[in-house]
Amino acid sequence: MTTHHLQGRSDNEVLWFQRRETLSAAAAWVAMGGMPAALAQQRSNVVDFVGDVLLNGQRMSSNQTVQSGDEILTGPGSRLIFVIGNSAFHVRQNSRLSVSRGRTLNTVSLLRLLTGAVVSVFGRGGNRLISTPTLTAGIRGTGVYTEVMPDLRTYFCNCYGTVELETRGEQLVSTSNYHQSYWGEVQPDQGGRVITPAGAINHTDEELEFLAGLINQRTAWQIAGRRGVKDGRGHMDSAPGVLHPAAVPKSDAR
């Protein structure tokens, strides 16, 4: 189990993948052929859920399907794991998430997270976005963790892959092998920035590995055969002297 640092979250929330019922559900999902088989057999794409989950305002049942265009609301102690196309998601408790349609019902073009948190693994594909009240992330094939804090500040971790971040005219490209983390600020910091460096908090390697396994993928550190330095800077090694992308002086970043 990798070390994890919590800020406003509990161990139970980040260790959800250890739950016996969740492991059994994931094993059954993979054994039954994953998303292609679910489509062919007209089965649900919900891998697991706990507690009260509303789908488009109605209480959800385990045999329902989450499609692009749907809105998901999870209550206290609730969570939902589902797959759409080649992407897998875990929606944590007290979250409100809408899923916008891509080219078909089984592709995602936009996740709009208004409250709470979502762990996401995206396979390679067309343009996908994650939007929060204070940040927009353009997704390529990658794994990410997104959380909207109570004050609407956004925490965003590019766990691996390449992401284009933008908010209120500020833009940067994040390329990460191992957890490169950011804040989408409500107000500019003293340097006038609205995208600032963050540490790695509130999520684990194992969560990303779990979701990647649902879509027959591996994380960057699984492929490399080792874990990196989980300091929020996105490197496998300590990389002394290398600044976090959100800490590079604006004049040097042009």
Rank of each mutant, 00 (worst) to 15 (best):
V46C: 13
E164I: 04
L172V: 02
Q42N: 15
H235A: 09
W16R: 04
I223P: 00
G213Q: 07
K250R: 14
G75F: 08
V66K: 06
M149H: 13
R96F: 02
N94F: 12
P133W: 08
I195P: 06
A198I: 09
D189G: 05
N45W: 07
G143H: 14
L111W: 12
K230L: 04
R168M: 09
R153C: 04
I72T: 09
T65A: 06
N94K: 15
E147A: 02
V66R: 04
E206R: 06
D237R: 08
I201P: 00
G33F: 12
Y178F: 15
Y178E: 07
T134G: 00
R79L: 13
M236N: 01
R43H: 10
M236S: 03
G75N: 10
F49R: 05
T142W: 08
F49N: 08
V194T: 14
R9G: 00
V148G: 01
F210H: 03
V121W: 07
I139D: 08
F17H: 10
I130T: 12
N45E: 03
R124L: 03
V148Q: 02
L54W: 14
V173T: 15
R79Y: 05
L135R: 10
G225I: 11
M149W: 09
V30P: 05
T3M: 05
L54Y: 15
V229D: 03
G75V: 00
E21Y: 14
A26I: 08
D48V: 02
A246S: 12
L214P: 07
A200G: 03
Y160Q: 04
T3P: 00
P36D: 08
V99L: 15
G241M: 03
R124G: 11
S181A: 15
A246E: 12
A200L: 05
F156N: 01
